[in-house]
Structure formats: structure tokens, C-alpha cells
Amino acid sequence: MGKSCAPAPTNKKEYISDLGKILVNENGKKKYYKPEEVRKAHRKSKWYDGLNFSCWGMSTFSSHSDFDKYHEETGEICDYGEMKTEMLSGLSVSSTADWTEIPDIDIDASWLDFGDVFDGLLEGIGEFIGGIFDGI
């Protein structure tokens, strides 16, 4: 029987922003990052204090298939859609009323692919949100 992933970071928006900056600086802009790239970025971040919740970053920055393959290999039981939904909901739980006030993290926001999260109901919204971030 597999083990569950660690609890999610408390400040999801800040975690996504910090991890995104490290990923871009270390690996360049990509649509998706490999789980190992996300793990390395997590270890380099201020969030690494012995608690490894990098799979929450993987749910945001890795492809669904890479996420599933990684968790199959590690034996961890994690749900990509649920975790990605929780992480991205952390972006909307913000005191920032205007998208233009969100700090520029200089990343390709195409990873905001909500199709996996909502089983295609909101297909294309990731590109829309990506366009907003690209315009900041």
C-alpha cells in the first residue's frame, strides 16, 4: 500500500511564484517541467525545511502523465486533478483585487491548463489566463 503525499503548502500563491522563478532560472521557460526538475527547485527554495511537499508543485508545473508516472514509481498516492485544483485555487484566494497587481514571475503561464482539472469543461481557459499573465 502506498503512502499519501505531504500536506499542501500554506501559502500556495507564494509557493507557486517562488517555485516558478527557480524553474525558469534553472531550466528556461517550458510548458511543463519534469518532476525531478520540480523536486530540485523545491529543494533550492525557501520552502525546503526537511518537509518535502514538492508533489504539490508537480501538480502545478508537470504534465499529468509525468505526475502519474512519478507517483507510480514512488508509490505515493496523489491525485493530479484534486491537487492542481487546490493549488490553483490558492491563486484566487488573494487580497489582490486586480490581476495586474500580481508580481511578474516571468514564466510561461501555459501550465495553467484547467482542462485536466475540470475534465475539459473549461477547455481553453488556461490559454486565456496565460494571456493575462503574459500581458503583465
Rank of each mutant, 00 (worst) to 15 (best):
S62I: 02
E26I: 15
M1K: 09
L112G: 02
G120K: 04
V117A: 04
T100D: 11
W47S: 06
H64Q: 07
M87P: 00
G28S: 08
Y33I: 02
V38C: 14
F53G: 00
D18V: 15
E101P: 09
K34N: 14
G81A: 10
D18I: 14
I105C: 07
G2N: 10
N11A: 03
G28E: 07
D104V: 03
T74Y: 05
P35Q: 12
H64L: 05
Y15I: 05
D79N: 10
E76F: 08
K29W: 04
G81Y: 02
D116K: 12
I136A: 10
Y15K: 03
I136K: 14
I125V: 04
D98A: 14
N25G: 13
E101Q: 15
T96S: 10
G75H: 01
F67H: 00
G2H: 13
E26Q: 13
I136S: 11
G81P: 00
D49H: 13
H71C: 04
G130Q: 11
I136C: 11
G90C: 08
T96E: 10
P103I: 05
E123Y: 09
F133V: 15
G124T: 14
A8Q: 05
E37C: 15
T100F: 12
I22C: 09
W111N: 09
S65M: 09
K30E: 01
S17M: 13
I16Q: 01
E82S: 10
S54R: 00
W99A: 14
P35E: 11
S95A: 12
Y48F: 11
P35D: 12
